[in-house]
């Protein structure tokens, strides 16, 4: 089989239009999942309570189901059920009016909040509690102790896992085509279908994902070097 390089070039240009969508997905999801995931980790590490139990069930659910299944449930099944309910009530709310992109933000964020919370929980518990006590003993508040002493060290500890999570997120955004969101995968699929040149189309996006993830890995490598100075060894 011969590769159609002309088509590769054309597909590349067409797929570029999807890059902002992929970027937006990654950035928005990180913007939600990092801070919220951190809060979830803190709550789960605190005293056992109702909230902590609910969160642990949530994390187990999200980690135990494929993202694709969550998409089927939330994007495909949920609106049918809820619409029926609204119609019975005579409400005019149009559930089908919600955009696929909104579902994509929601589903990826809930998944990544769970994943990030587990990563932060590991990082936080790796920091000796004594340092927080020492911070309090020299007159820092608990918040200052976390913010200035514990969190910077926990972040340094989780950088490799965080890098893994971010590259994983980049790859997971390829699922959004199932919610009719036109990211690079969706565009490649349609371009490939138009000309029945799937191999070329998929090669293009494979290279794109690799490039994106290599860049992310490089950024994390630089970050890791910067924190390395105090991280022992």
């Amino acid at each position: 089989m011969k590769l159609d390089f002309n088509f590769i070039r054309n597909t590349f240009i067409a797929v570029l239009a999807g890059v902002p969508v992929t970027f937006k997905l990654v950035l928005v999801v990180l913007l939600f999942s990092i801070p919220i995931g951190f809060l979830v980790a803190i709550v789960r590490m605190g005293k056992e309570g109702v909230l902590s139990k609910i969160l642990s069930v949530y994390v187990s659910f999200v980690r135990g189901t494929p993202a694709m299944v969550q998409i089927y449930l939330l994007y495909n099944a949920f609106p049918v059920v809820i619409m029926k309910y609204f119609q019975d009530k005579g409400s005019g709310i149009d559930v089908y009016g919600i955009k696929g992109l909104t579902y994509a933000y929601f589903i990826l964020s809930t998944t990544y909040i769970a994943i990030m919370s587990e990563c932060f929980r590991g990082g936080l518990s790796a920091i000796d509690k004594g340092q927080l006590e020492a911070a309090k003993s020299v007159g820092l508040t608990t918040f200052q102790g976390y913010y200035r002493i514990v969190i910077p060290q926990a972040l340094a500890k989780v950088l490799p896992v965080l890098c893994n999570n971010v590259t994983g997120l980049v790859k997971m955004t390829s699922l959004v085509f199932a919610m009719s969101v036109f990211d690079i995968t969706a565009i490649a699929k349609t371009e490939g279908a138009k000309h029945t040149t799937y191999v070329e189309a998929y090669l293009v996006i494979a290279v794109m994902y690799i490039t994106l993830n290599l860049t992310i890995e490089l950024i994390f490598k630089i970050l890791e070097k910067r924190v390395h100075k105090y991280a022992g060894t």
Binding site: D128, Q131, E133, A134, S137, I149, Q153, Y230, G232
Partner: peptide, 14 residues
């Protein structure tokens, strides 16, 4: 008051 800990508990990032 000030506290000196058994296992030092220095701030490792400082």
């Amino acid at each position: 008051t000030a506290f000196v800990f058994q296992n030092y508990c220095l701030f490792n990032n400082k």
